[in-house]
Design a binder for these strands. Sequence first.
DNA 1: TATTTCCTTTTGAGTGTTCAAAGTGAAAGA
DNA 2: TCTTTCACTTTGAACACTCAAAAGGAAATA
Lengths: 227, 227
Amino acid sequence: MASRTVEDYIKQIYQEQQPAPGQLVSLGRLATAMEVVPGTVTTMVKALAEAGLVSYEPRQGVRLTPAGEKLALHVLRRHRLIELFLVQVLKFDWSEVHAEAEELEHAVSDRLLERIDELLGRPGFDPHGDPIPSAAGEVAQPRLHPLNAARPADRGVIARIADQQAEFLRYATARGLVPGAEVVIQSVDVPGDSITLLVRGKSRTLGRAAAAGILVAWQPETAASEL
Amino acid sequence: MASRTVEDYIKQIYQEQQPAPGQLVSLGRLATAMEVVPGTVTTMVKALAEAGLVSYEPRQGVRLTPAGEKLALHVLRRHRLIELFLVQVLKFDWSEVHAEAEELEHAVSDRLLERIDELLGRPGFDPHGDPIPSAAGEVAQPRLHPLNAARPADRGVIARIADQQAEFLRYATARGLVPGAEVVIQSVDVPGDSITLLVRGKSRTLGRAAAAGILVAWQPETAASEL
DNA sequence: TATTTCCTTTTGAGTGTTCAAAGTGAAAGA
DNA sequence: TCTTTCACTTTGAACACTCAAAAGGAAATA
């Protein structure tokens, strides 16, 4: 049985690896993310490698093995189902549930999780728009793109808020920047480092850094701008 | 912040102390209940005393301090509200919820607990009939008595099942021995070590050990048999 | 009183997780 | 090429919790 700490490391590695699956994650990054000193990560990563959950290349970084990825998806499934449960059943605000789920994800049994999944109607996405892995470990992975990479006239639907700090979530909510909202890019001001878009009939301007925290599924006609 | 282990010890001491509050609990008892070796308890109890949660008299036993009792009631409040939540909202069977709550009681925040309490309508008792301490630490303590101390013709209502092992709970449920059920003692067979009673119109015989696991609130006319 | 028994405590050690601080390697700059 | 720098690793130690086994104390028995 993986300890709570092991689950947290594995989940974090998964998330650091997300932009480019299979990529090596540096131990320094991991130390920052886990809020521990670098030496602690070196020690821990060796133990994870010993347990077959990651492959570790000294001075290069870590990467999840298939077993590690399976565990990561299990933890994420628990985390995201709990978040959705808290929002839908207990009427929490979606900006508050992250920290709560962080604790509960290590305490719910498979049986309880199954009840929750059933009660919620086997949902595919959590309140932030993140996909909920299936019990078998499959994830729906829609092609999403950060808002800061948009071009004028692009049009799409907000799918996820990647930056899940409570303050940012409140900021986004207050402006209608929530999963499901339609957006149309009005202008991109490169020197001004900002982007202006239309949401719910209102024009909003936000900086590139903030825009990077919002992921959008563009409508087909703009899909060519990908690559 | 009390660790999970500390919370478990404190809760256990509270429960061992229950029959006679203020009483000393021997370390051996505690070791058995916590399923650890006696030496571990000695070490742990010293640390609890250091933290001001118990008073410890070497070779005599432990007793909760007011601070310890406050913590115990907090933990019990979490445990019992969670049990009721699992039964009422997630449709668990009451015989299944104990182990589940054992984990969750260490993971729910005060805010989440408050939501649950509100959603359930600020209940006073959990599915086993145990009183749920208030947030301020007050417990409704009805005068209850084990069924094995009953006399023929005693009549009352089952208030609690003290033995919460899943197997016993299923046994009790199957025979209608659930909180709220009216019982009338038909006979007490001392040499035969058994007791016969009427529940839901059916006559049932059970051994003294099993009867000790069922707590009853007797009707006034029999209250004199107390002391 | 002397002995036995039972419970409790002590001692030494191990596991998992963490830190501080010293040491090492590899890439970047001089 | 030599040096500096930065990231990473190692080492030694601590903390919380646990066990096994030896030692000690108090009460019951002889």
